[in-house]
């Protein structure tokens, strides 16, 4: 820890702690997940940046979607995202969540993940190498520092719009709006 960081820690401990303790929920949708084991094990060792995988969305604050998103998966992604506590950051990994990738004309995958949940950053490539994950992380750090990694706030503000997009795909989601509070959920219902 260098000296100018101490001032930052004292100023906003929560923000700094969020930055250096990214507990990741890896949503293993497609082929992208194959790159994650090298990231978290001996070769690249993500733990030295404080990034470890966790098993449930309740414990994490980094949500990484590693591959194409089929319609059925999207439901699980939305629910998992809504179950993560604030603040939380989403990163799309690989081409598919960005624009559909090689599944761009598939009837059963979505093309733009950020229409359904807010995404704070993308890692482009098919496949991105593990190094790219670290570049993304350092970039996310900068965004957190500047206060620009505000996906969770955007989701709260524009929940009605997000919910509308979600319900355009699924006529009826299987659960009532869990998030963020009843009044906004009611608004989304209208």
């Amino acid at each position: 820890m260098d000296r100018n960081q101490i001032a930052k820690w004292l100023k906003s401990p929560a923000k700094m702690a969020n930055k250096y303790s990214l507990h990741a929920v890896y949503f293993c949708t497609g082929c992208g997940i194959i790159e994650i084991p090298p990231v978290i094990t001996t070769r690249w060792d993500a733990e030295r940046f404080g990034i470890i995988p966790v098993a449930t969305p309740r414990q994490g604050n980094l949500f990484m979607i590693t591959g194409y998103v089929s319609l059925k998966t999207l439901k699980a992604i939305i629910r998992t995202y809504e179950q993560m506590p604030d603040p939380k950051y989403t990163v799309g990994f690989g081409s598919c969540p960005i624009n559909g990738g090689m599944y761009w004309d598939s009837y059963n995958t979505i093309k733009h993940l950020d229409r359904y949940i807010p995404v704070d950053g993308w890692i482009a490539g098919c496949m991105p190498r593990p190094e790219a994950v670290f570049i993304a992380i350092t970039h996310l750090w900068t965004l957190i520092d500047k206060g620009k990694a505000d996906g969770y706030l955007r989701y709260q503000e524009n929940y009605a719009a997000y919910r509308r997009n979600q319900e355009m795909l699924f006529a009826e989601l299987e659960w009532p709006p869990l998030y963020p509070c009843d009044s906004i959920a009611e608004e989304a219902r209208k």
Binding site: A14, A17, Y20, D45, R48, P87
Partner: peptide, 21 residues
């Protein structure tokens, strides 16, 4: 591996305290 800094659990605890679960 290199491993996290030895004060990593402190960071984790502070981060968890700040999250609204």
């Amino acid at each position: 591996r290199y491993g996290p800094p030895i004060y990593q659990p402190v960071i984790d605890v502070v981060r968890m305290m700040s999250q609204r679960s």
